[in-house]
Amino acid sequence: MLAAVENKSASVEAKPVLRVEGLKAYYQMNYFGVRREVRAVDDVSLTIKRNEIYGIAGESSSGKSSLIKTIAGAITPPLRVVEGSVKFDFGGKELDVYAQRPAMKAARWKHLSYVMQGSMNVLNPVRKVKHAFHDFAFKHMGLSEGEFRARVESHLQRIGLDPRVLESYPHQLSGGMRQRLTIGLATVCEPEFIIADEPTTALDVLVQQDVLALIKGVQQRMGSSIIFVTHDMTVHAAIADRIGIVYAGRLVEEGPTLDVFQRPQHPYTAHLIASLPRIGDTRKRVALGGKPPNLADPPSGCRFHPRCPLAVDKCKSENPALLPRNSGRVACWRAGEVEAA
């Protein structure tokens, strides 16, 4: 079984489909002359290869959703990109999200799509489901009405939905079916890159595995890349090839899923994994003390130092860079010193 997991990561092609370099996106507010800056994404660099599922983990208000929105180019003021770039590579053609706005618009949904959180909010409650497909995908596919309808129906069948759902209203469908629909919506154009924000958070436990298997299956069939965000580490364990851990707007650790779970290098990651409850184990789990940092006024040096059990003086003054270590990257002055949980 171990060999299978390693094989899976080795078969991932080397050429990156997404390159994020030194990305800084801040919420900049200016009320009555009082300037406030919230550094939600602070100097994040990452690459995502073709045919890879990349999971982003972190607590709420750590900036993981802001990061994913910035990558999608779906940000509105007060969130602004201050520095850095987000570049996609679709079929050998480079596309800079923030420099080539018109090209980006054309690429959307055809090459790059988005599975949104809370499927009920995506589907208009007073219009039939078929209209959502028409609105999102029709103009990107270049098909006639009839061909488009046939394509949508065969696509829905492949993801395990009866094409009759097209004629129903969202409230007539269960939560699991709606989430399937939003995944169908995001994948009907067979995009190379899919962004998913908490794809399973609002679902009942019983359908969660099916939806995860669906995402994985669609990804394998189309050979696309997925970046997804969730705070639920078990979802990362189930489908991610690599995981990036975000803390206070910064990427603090990144690596292949198995390595991150078995040999976490950053104390925050180690804590996240050690605190997961498991059935069959009632040993006391220690929760992380302290409070999440305020991104408008983050701690100096390493942002994790006020809550870190391993913090030394250096951590308070100097910010550690994200450096390669073992199979991944980690930003910590005491990387690897944490005991394996």
Binding site: M1, L2, V5, V205, L206, Q208, Q209, D210, L212, A213, K216, G217, Q220, M233, T234, V235, H236, A237, A238, I239, T257, L258, F261, I273, L276, R278, I279
Partner: peptide, 21 residues
């Protein structure tokens, strides 16, 4: 309900998803 809970372990959890696939 019990078998719908994914364990926080990449080896076991990814095997469950592959099995579903």
């Amino acid at each position: 309900l019990r078998s719908a809970v994914l364990p926080p372990d990449p080896v076991v959890a990814s095997a469950i998803i592959r099995e579903k696939l």
